[in-house]
């Protein structure tokens, strides 16, 4: 059960049961939808960008523990960051959940709790759906992002 304990850490379960920044952000100027056909996860993400930085953002949708917790932790991690900073952070996060050695760059902080995902390759998409959706929102493409 060590792998499972790594995957379903308390922090993750906590964010799953009580997601932060949940709902639709009033006065948002960025939005995107994400979909993971594999497990039916859906996420709707809204954000307000001011002076090139994310002033605020929220997400809503339905999904598994990994995808919900990942979205919740992400919303806390990216507030106040620029698009470039977010891209760098996502790269580090992606390396983490796919088991690649950490390079130099952005500090992951609380995002480290998702390290257990690397032992469960089919769950990587769950953890990254919100990040793909955020990137789409920042580009304001208004297209649904699919993990497939």
């Amino acid at each position: 059960m060590t792998g499972l304990n790594e995957l379903y850490q308390d922090v993750i379960l906590h964010h799953y049961k009580s997601p932060r920044n949940y709902g639709e952000l009033p006065g948002h100027n960025r939005a995107a939808d994400g979909h993971n056909p594999l497990c039916g996860d859906r996420i709707h993400l809204t954000a307000r960008v001011e002076d090139g930085r994310i002033a605020d953002l929220r997400f809503q949708g339905s999904g598994c523990a990994i995808s919900t917790a990942s979205a919740s932790v992400m919303t806390e991690a990216v507030k106040g960051k620029t698009e470039d900073e977010i891209r760098a952070l996502f790269q580090r996060f992606h390396d983490l959940v796919t088991g690649k050695p950490a390079g130099d760059g952005a500090e992951l902080g609380k995002l480290e709790v998702f390290s257990g995902v690397s032992e469960f390759p089919v769950r990587v998409k769950c953890a990254t759906l919100c990040w793909h959706t955020l990137q789409a929102a920042l580009k304001n493409t208004h297209q649904t992002v699919s993990t497939e």
């Binding site: 499972l4 379903y8 594999l38 497990c39 598994c64 523990a65 089919v122 769950r123 769950c126």
Partner: peptide
């Protein structure tokens, strides 16, 4: 209740 099928599937697989 409170458990997404995908999470249940991963734990059962273990």
């Amino acid at each position: 209740d409170g458990v997404h099928p995908h999470d249940a599937g991963t734990i059962l697989d273990q």
